[in-house]
Structure formats: structure tokens, C-alpha cells
Amino acid sequence: MISAFRNWPSALFLCLIALSLLAPLLPIHDPLAMNIASRFAPPSWAFPLGQDEYGRDILSRLVWALRSAMFIAISAALLSGAIGSALGIIGGFSRGATEVLTMRSMDIILCFPPLLLAMLAVTLYGPGSLTLIPVLALVFVPSFTRVAHASVLTVRSQEYVDAARGMGAGAGRIMLRTILPNILGPLIVQFSFVMAVTVVLESGLSFLGLGVLPPAPSLGLMIGTGRATLAQAPMLLVWPCLVLSLLILVLNAFCDRLRDWFDPRHVHGTGN
């Protein structure tokens, strides 16, 4: 019973993924369909959460905003994870000038606050989902690089690495087939953490008008418009705030669960 309760972050995370993937198949209204005559309409059987300032279905827009947030977060985390992990593994395994060049370039990126760096890049290249993904990926490449580098320094002197080198395996094969599988734990935990922070950054940029472009639904955009219409319909602000808070809570709890799972001191299957 305790073990089942402890798995709630994983269950909710999978539910959010399923909801995002199945959004086009759900029996909900078109999130872009407007009905000015029904603006600020209260909840009804057809519109369980009511309608917004343009008469659009709030529930439908929340579902599609969740889909957009998950797509951007997963895509940015995957891209930054692939680039950062590769740089960290190469730098940690090769050492010397390669390591210095790799880690010092990451330190340069870390000198800039993530939000300001993202705002600068989006301002230069324009807002939109296709811009947000590489920009947010760039912001989090250093974190993956540092995690991968530290992990490689721990395992590069292990006996199985020396055995692979003694069997004639090349550097590329050792890094890909021997080192990478043994450092996946910290990288997966970092991936879940980056997803949670990316959701916050994407929502903040969209709130400022530098993220997802309207009329596409976004939690940050919905919070911005809900703030502007707070006097007429306060629930327009409450619903996206609740969904964003729930999403961040689930991602952070899932990150903690992964950290416990990959902790070698954690005893699996005992409920501890």
C-alpha cells in the first residue's frame, strides 16, 4: 500500500503524457473556435470550465496548452541532453585541452541568467515554439555537460573501462557502449529536472509575449489574458495557474522519485 502511494508521481506523469498525446482524439471543442456572443460564459454541460473572453472553450485550451508545454519541455530537454551529455562525456574521457575547452565554454553560458539568456535569444530570432525549443535547449546544455563530465570522471578509471580498452575498443566505442550506459542514472534525473524548469521558463516567456504565439493556447498566455480580465472573470486566471502548478508539482515529484530510484543507497521494493 505504501509502495503504491509512493509511485503516484510516476502515475500522474504518465497520465499527463497520455493526455498530451491524446489531445487531438479527445471529445473536446476546437481550442481556437470563437463565439463572441458567449464570451465569459459560466460553466455548463457543453463547456465544463466556461468560456474565455473570445468565447473559446477553457477546458479545451487548457488541454492543448498542456500538450504544448509538454512538447516544448520534452523536446528542449532531449536536445540539451543529447548535446550536453556528448560534450561532457568527450571532455571527461579525453581530458587535456578538450576538457578545458568544453568545460570553459559551458562556464561562459552559465555566466548568463537562464531567463535573460532565453529572452535575448527569443528577441533576436523571434517568438514561437520552433524558436523556444533550441533556445531553451541551449540554456540547459551546461547542466547536462557538468553532470556527464562529473560522472565520467567517476567511472573512467573503473576496471570494466580498462577491460574494454585492453580488448582493443576505440575511444568512441568505449564512450558510447561502456561509459554512457553506466552514467544514465544521473542524466535521466537531470532530464526530469530540466523538464520542470523548462515549463516554468516557457510559461514566463509566453506570459511576456516572447513564447508561444497567440491564438495558440499556452499556459503563460492564458495567465496573461486572465490577469487582464481578472475583474470580469477571475476563474480565467485561476484555471491556468492551477494547471501550471500541478504540472510543476508532478514533474518535481517525478524528479525526486527518479533520484531515489537511481540512488545506490536506496533499497528498492521495501517501501523505504
Results as ranks from 00 to 15, higher is better:
240 P>T: 00
128 G>I: 09
100 V>Y: 10
11 A>S: 06
162 D>L: 07
12 L>I: 10
224 G>H: 14
246 L>H: 03
257 R>C: 13
48 P>N: 05
154 T>I: 05
34 M>G: 07
6 R>F: 15
259 R>V: 07
252 N>M: 10
165 R>F: 00
115 L>I: 06
196 A>R: 07
169 A>T: 05
57 D>S: 15
129 S>C: 08
49 L>K: 11
8 W>Q: 09
153 L>T: 09
268 H>M: 13
180 L>V: 10
23 A>I: 00
67 R>G: 04
106 M>W: 08
1 M>W: 00
43 P>A: 09
90 I>Q: 07
43 P>Y: 05
48 P>C: 09
146 R>W: 00
212 V>E: 15
44 S>H: 04
237 L>I: 06
239 W>K: 07
67 R>P: 04
252 N>D: 03
179 I>N: 02
267 V>A: 14
85 S>V: 02
120 L>W: 05
262 F>Y: 14
227 R>L: 12
214 P>F: 11
244 L>V: 05
226 G>W: 01
143 S>R: 15
201 L>Y: 15
102 T>D: 11
139 V>Y: 02
5 F>C: 14
37 A>L: 13
48 P>W: 12
135 V>M: 03
45 W>R: 15
155 V>G: 01
149 H>G: 03
206 S>D: 11
72 I>V: 15
272 N>P: 14
7 N>P: 00
45 W>Y: 12
244 L>I: 08
11 A>D: 05
156 R>G: 00
51 Q>I: 08
121 A>T: 10
270 T>H: 06
30 D>E: 06
198 T>D: 06
219 L>F: 07
87 L>E: 08
214 P>T: 13
210 L>A: 03
48 P>R: 07
198 T>S: 10
30 D>K: 04
24 P>V: 11
249 L>T: 15
238 V>T: 09
217 P>L: 03
168 G>K: 12
170 G>L: 10
165 R>P: 00
39 R>L: 02
113 P>D: 09
42 P>D: 04
2 I>R: 12
32 L>Q: 13
182 N>M: 03
61 R>K: 11
267 V>W: 01
255 C>V: 08
256 D>Q: 15
92 G>S: 05
99 E>P: 01
